[in-house]
């Protein structure tokens, strides 16, 4: 395998650097009510890792101090962090645009049923995992009953105005493959999801994003057990597309872990690949001028973001 950094060097990127920090992606912890087979973090119900109150205060301070326009909340299930609502409230007061990533089923958990209204009142944009428009692949990936629960949560969100045409309550779905293959082109798949979910379940959404499964964490375990690992990596490498490099998400966001450590992305966080030495390493040391053009800590998993039309937390990076 040609190391990713070497591949970029041949393209003239001796050092891949960030272009800006428009997004602070906050991982509130690895606790989740699900244990999805594709999870890159090995998140699940028994994970103890949760961002604590003092770290959350620092996140709020950093967003305010540096006027960061967008905060992207993720996990685990971010809603399970006991300080989640406090954080959203404070960010909303600051006028920051908030994206929260939801697995949907958590919205039915005891004590969390009020969250759809909470989100609506704070104009939180939602990106919700729904790997397919049918039950079997969804339950295979996310656990028995996940599909039906997801539909129930989506119906509640739709009733509040989320995902409805012309509504500014944004509700997007996130597709990821249920196996060792790459995601489809989002355009035709979005049309298919829209048609099928409306026809069978009267469910509506704004956009469908597609995300490639990164060969790390629980998904890597699956690839290795099923004998697909080498081939999957080979296909990622063979699919390397230089046109994706400009839009790589690590060039526009910075990720903060539940412990307050800074990373170039959530995948580096999963692999414990910190920011390049010499840079601020924690949220307490956050210095936007230093971080906005920082060199990115690359690894071979980065091939996962540059294959084909590319992949990111906001879907593909270039047109197919």
């Amino acid at each position: 395998m040609v190391p990713f950094a070497q591949r970029l060097e041949h393209l003239g990127y001796a050092e891949l650097k960030a272009s800006q920090v428009n997004i602070l992606q906050v991982n509130l912890g690895w606790r989740c009510n699900q244990s999805c087979k594709h999870c890159h973090l090995l998140a699940g119900p028994h994970r103890p890792e949760q961002m604590e109150a003092d770290t959350i205060e620092e996140v709020i301070r950093v967003v305010q101090r540096w006027s960061l326009p967008l905060v992207d909340l993720t996990g685990g299930a971010p809603e399970l962090n006991p300080h989640f609502e406090y954080l959203v409230d404070r960010l909303h007061e600051l006028g920051t645009h908030i994206i929260s990533r939801s697995n949907l089923t958590v919205l039915l958990e005891p004590g969390k049923e009020h969250l759809p209204e909470f989100f609506r009142d704070r104009r939180v944009e939602l990106i919700c995992s729904l790997p397919y428009y049918q039950e079997e692949p969804v339950d295979r990936l996310r656990g028995p009953g996940a599909f039906k629960k997801s539909l129930k949560a989506l119906r509640r969100l739709n009733r509040l105005g989320y995902g409805q045409k012309d509504s500014d309550l944004k509700l997007h779905l996130m597709y990821n493959p249920a196996g060792a293959y790459f995601p489809p082109e989002p355009g035709p798949l979005e049309a298919l999801f829209r048609r099928e979910l409306a026809a069978h379940y009267d469910i509506h959404f704004h956009h469908l994003y597609t995300l490639l499964n990164m060969p790390i964490g629980r998904f890597k375990e699956y690839l290795q057990k099923s004998g697909n690992y080498e081939r999957y990596l080979g296909r990622l490498m063979a699919g390397f597309n230089p046109a994706t490099v400009d839009g790589l998400m690590c060039r526009y966001l910075i990720s903060v872990s539940w412990e307050g450590h800074l990373f170039d992305c959530d995948f580096n966080q999963a692999l414990d690949l910190p920011l390049t030495p010499g840079l601020p390493q924690t949220i307490w040391e956050f210095e936007l001028p230093t971080l906005r053009t920082r060199p990115i800590h690359l690894g071979d998993h980065c091939y996962g973001c540059t294959a084909g039309t590319g992949s990111s937390c906001g879907g593909r990076l270039v047109e197919g």
Binding site: Y181, F182, P184, L192
Partner: peptide, 12 residues
């Protein structure tokens, strides 16, 4: 098989 899955088709 891969191509169909990667185009969004299902086993049915």
């Amino acid at each position: 098989t891969r191509g169909s899955l990667e185009a969004g088709s299902n086993l049915e």
